[in-house]
Computed example of a mutant assay.
Amino acid sequence: MMMKKIETDSAPAAIGPYSQGVAAGDFVFFSGQIPLEPVSGELVPGGIGKQMRQVMANMGAVLAAAGLDFFHVVKTTIYLTDLGDFAVVNGIYGEFFSGTYPARATVQVAALPKGAAIEIEWVAFRG
């Protein structure tokens, strides 16, 4: 099976030994995105709403680098440092998906890289 690295300067660069995304057959697996501003690499200030919107912008940029969009997303995993943020995150998330929503899990974690409040990883299908 051929694998292809997916990367773009329009989303934050990987902060470790991993790829922004990897295409494998008809599926593309994307590493978690946290709310970093792509150029500065700094965490977006301003609370969970602004952080969630930055994560979704980063997701859109990496999807576009793979020639895909949110329609192609089949599975997401959302990591939150506070499940009390779920309603805000869920509302913004719903702005980006319609029709058949991706399968999803949301979990609370003790901490995320760079002090982020949210991280989302996802899988897309090219078919």
Rank of each mutant, 00 (worst) to 15 (best):
G41P: 15
Y18G: 02
A116R: 02
V88I: 15
A111F: 11
Y79E: 09
M3N: 08
V22L: 15
M1T: 06
K4M: 14
G16F: 05
A111L: 06
K114W: 07
G49Q: 14
N90C: 04
G115Q: 11
L63Q: 08
E37C: 00
M56G: 04
G41W: 07
F125Y: 13
I15P: 01
S19W: 13
Q51R: 04
F125Q: 04
P38C: 08
E7T: 09
A103H: 09
A14C: 10
K114M: 14
A87N: 14
L112Y: 09
M2T: 10
P113W: 12
F30S: 02
P113K: 09
I78R: 03
M1D: 07
G67E: 10
G99Q: 11
T100R: 09
M3V: 11
Q108I: 10
T81M: 10
L63R: 00
I118Y: 03
I118H: 00
I15Q: 13
Q51T: 02
Y18A: 03
F30E: 04
A117Q: 15
G94F: 07
A13K: 14
I6C: 07
V89E: 05
V62F: 05
F97W: 08
E37I: 02
A64H: 03
S98I: 00
Q33F: 06
L83N: 11
A66E: 03
A61S: 14
N58C: 07
P17Q: 15
E37P: 00
V109R: 02
G67L: 11
G16Q: 04
G99L: 11
A14Q: 08
A116L: 07
A24E: 12
G49C: 10
V88G: 07
G60I: 06
G91F: 01
D82A: 12
V22Y: 15
V73I: 13
P35I: 00
R53C: 06
A66R: 00
G49R: 14
P38Y: 03
A64V: 04
A110T: 13
R126D: 14
A117G: 14
A64C: 04
Q54E: 12
E7H: 14
N58A: 09
S19K: 14
G67Y: 13
M59T: 03
V74D: 01
Q54L: 05
P35V: 01
I120A: 03
G16M: 06
V39G: 03
D9R: 13
N90S: 12
F125H: 08
A110C: 07
E121D: 13
A124F: 03
A110Y: 06
V62W: 04
D82H: 11
Q20I: 07
I34K: 01
A110H: 11
V123Q: 10
F71C: 06
